[in-house]
Amino acid sequence: MEAFLHQLVSGLAAGGIYASLALALVMIYQSTHHINFAQGEMAMFSTYLAWTLLQAGLPYWVAFAATLGISCAAGMLIERVLIRPVEKAPVLTVVITFIALLVIFNSVAGWVFTHTVKVFPSPFGAGLLPRNPFMSPHEFGSIVVTLAVLVLLYAFFRFTPLGLAMRAAALNPVSARLSGIRVGRMLALGWGLAAAIGAVAGMMVAPVVYLDPNMMAGILLYAFAAALLGGIDNPLGAVVGGFVVGVVENLMGAYVIGTELKLTVALVLILGVLLFKPAGLFGRAVVTRV
């Protein structure tokens, strides 16, 4: 029983990781209707940025805030400079742009920061929680942060005029433009926010998996699966999806099929769910007019 609880908690902790990156994917999808394959590498790069700031002696939360700010600005810049020119191109062309970004970030990070793994500090302390022998304070803290980001996002889109404008720009660019919303600016802002959320994800992930240029390679697939499982247009779905993926994958690996095929089986399961709920667990079915 103890081992089972352990696996469960370890799955939840992993799920929190997937959920935080999935949130960034959902963010960009909501504002641009693209899935950004480079999201993981952008988050990794942001984390290196935070690491550099910390090495320079900044206190954690200052570095944290600075990283969010810089990542957001960089995200907007990337949208303006790299994505805008291919806005009208076939969507696959945009996908290729993402892939190009992915390899560039990965390669440059390896070049600048080397591939030696780096320790990234946790703001929540090390060791184990006082009355819970299964979870570290960081795992607990990062789950809380993920949920906090979720609530903030929800409030932002639901209650602020800017959030409303962004939703409008994504949902119906033409009408949005007619009612005076600067659609281009909203798209850039969406990228900026996604980059900032990615940076949070990176800073929460790095203390667990160590910081290295390939840190996000494995996580991106799970985040991708989590976002789609929950419904790509639904932040809550992405978070739930993340936890489900983390727990299912861990328990399957430990008790059912062993580790050799756990990735495969986890993916098959997710796809099986999608076959019956093609829009994801929480997604809206898209209705198109012919």
Binding site: A3, A13, I17, V208, G218, I219, Y222, N250, G253
Partner: peptide, 14 residues
């Protein structure tokens, strides 16, 4: 574990 696994925590628990 696979090189694509984020961590080996679950394996160690096991």
């Amino acid at each position: 574990y696979e090189v694509s696994d984020p961590t080996v925590d679950s394996q160690v628990v096991d």
